[in-house]
Each structure stands twice: as C-alpha cells, then as structure tokens.
Amino acid sequence: MKSPGILPGLFLFKAKINAGDYKMKKVTRVAIQGIKASFHEEAAFKFFGNDIKTVECNSFKQTCEVLEAREVDYVVMAIENSIAGSLLPNYTLIREYNFAVTGEVYLPIQLHLMALPGVKLEDVKYVTSHPIAIRQCIDFFDEFPHLKVVESVDTAACAKKIRDEQLTDTVAIANTLAAELYGLNIIERRIESNKKNYTRFLILQNDKTEDLTEINKSSICFQVGNHVGALSKVLNIFAEQNVNLSKIQSMPVLGKRSEYYFYVDMEWTESEKYDIAIRKALKYTVNFNIMGEYLKNDIV
C-alpha cells in the first residue's frame, strides 16, 4: 500500500519539470519584412542564430504593429544600404512607435539572378525584385535593355512567385537562401554593382533593456532651433568629449517648414564622457530621445 504523501509529491515534482520544459522550449519570435529566405530573415539568423521563429510581415509598418501588440519579441529592420542609402521612412517608424534599438547587424548583400531549371537568360522577358535590390544591380541591366523591370515588395517573394506560377519568362533577383528554398537555378551570380555592398539592420524591441553593462554605441534623435550655429553647437559638445558621430541623418518635421529631426549614431570608448556629452546636449536641443544604447556590431 502506497503512502498517502507520495502522490502529491509526485504531482509537485512533475509540475516543476513541466514548468522547466516550458522555459526551455520558449523560442525567440522575430518579425521580418518579407517572407522566408528574405534578406531580413538572413539578418535575423545572423544576429540571433537559427533557433528562432521568424514572423513574416508584408510591410515595415506591420512589423511594428506586431511588436507593439507583443506578438513577437523583436523586429529586425533594415535602416541603410551602402549603395541605395538610408531607408528614411523607417527612422520615422522607430521614433513614432518609440521602440528601443537594442542591437545592430551588418549583412553583406550578394544578389543573384535566378530562374526555373532550364530557363536561359536569352529567353527571359521580365526581371523582378525589390526596388532597392534592382537599384543595386543597375549596371548589370544596362547590358540587357530588352528586359522589363517589375518591382515587388520582397526579393524572396519574387523567387517564390516564379516557383509557384512556373514562370519561364521571368527571372528574380534574390539571395542564395531563396534559390535553395524555392528550387530555382542561379543563372548569374553576384550581379550587384558594388561587390562591397552591405545593409545595416537594427534590432528593435518594445522596452529598453535594463542590462547596460556592455554598450559603446547609441542612436539618438533631437531637434534644434532654426538659427546660425544651433546644430554645430550640439555636435561640438560630442567632439569635445571624444564621442565619435558615425552617422547623421536629417528628416523634415511633417507640416513644419525649416524644422528637422536629426538622427545621430555615436560611438565611444569612455562611458563617462558619453554621459557628460548627453547631459550637455540636452540644454541645447528639444524633443531629445535616446532611441537605444547597444553594443557596436559592424562586422560584415
């Protein structure tokens, strides 16, 4: 006959195991613009590793909506490309949703021309991809003026459409992941104009992290008065404290002539001097916002 005390103890022991299993099985959810095998998913894998769940979104705004609703833990968002430049609307999204920038990742962009097996370039009439990807390959297409360019919302989606609809007159510009996932042949490799092409992505989350032990880079946003030397005064404050400004991007304030938001990325080696510079800059700016402080990660 079993002791009456054993059974409750067993249940308690099993409950503890199940709770532990739940924690172990919890997977990081990351929203990406585009579908699987897009450059955004590739960037997510590079930053977080492959053991994540990527959530496909049709637009950058939708990635923000699912993050705000806490349906995902992070968003990976492209912010600039070495050929096409900054994605200006994304700066506005980050500021308006008040997300925290908690990291960055640089991804080398290698663009390939792909088609269904057996299709040759001389038989093709259309080339399709994201407009930024197309812009990065403009030199290649100067040699093929007969090709009609069709813009789409996502590089990988173009590859998927060719597979799904069995399009024999169309090629897509996308990455190796897309060719492998959707069963396409790469008929021309590395067609991007600049072989040192890369895109920088920001890692966003709802709340600023409390663990700030390892930071040496930040992204801030502010406005200054419209008078001579206003911006220069602020920038000189950071120079005096040996804080390097790695990027400055301006955007007009909607509906207000001659007013601008300034988005600045900065790096430092001494956190005390960074703190001093921030405190001093606050006196000469308005709508000052530290969008995020994080560890520099510029390895391409």
Rank of each mutant, 00 (worst) to 15 (best):
A69I: 00
H146N: 15
F47D: 13
L12Y: 04
F39N: 15
L295R: 13
D73Y: 02
I6S: 06
S271F: 11
I186V: 13
E143F: 03
H40Y: 09
S232I: 00
L254V: 14
A100R: 06
E272W: 04
D154M: 04
N242V: 01
Y294E: 00
R257E: 06
L7G: 08
F13K: 15
V105W: 05
I79L: 11
V300R: 09
E272M: 04
R190Y: 06
Q241C: 02
T199E: 05
E214K: 09
K296F: 07
L107A: 02
T199Y: 03
T92V: 12
K217C: 01
I132V: 15
D139T: 08
V300C: 07
P145K: 12
Q205Y: 01
D169T: 03
I220C: 00
T155D: 13
L107C: 02
I191T: 04
T102R: 13
E293V: 01
C221V: 02
V105M: 04
T155N: 14
D51G: 03
M114P: 00
M24Y: 10
E41Q: 15
E272V: 09
N18S: 09
T155G: 09
A174Y: 00
V76I: 14
Y126V: 00
N206R: 11
Y106C: 14
V101T: 06
G255F: 05
E96Y: 11
M251C: 11
S152K: 09
C221I: 01
Q62K: 11
A157R: 10
G229S: 03
G85P: 13
V124I: 08
A78I: 06
E270V: 02
D73K: 04
I6T: 08
I17C: 09
V127Q: 14
N236D: 03
L204T: 09
V224A: 10
V153A: 11
I94E: 07
A31W: 08
A172K: 11
R189A: 15
G20A: 10
A100M: 02
P131G: 07
I278R: 00
D123S: 13
A100W: 07
E214L: 02
A230Q: 01
N50Y: 15
V171W: 06
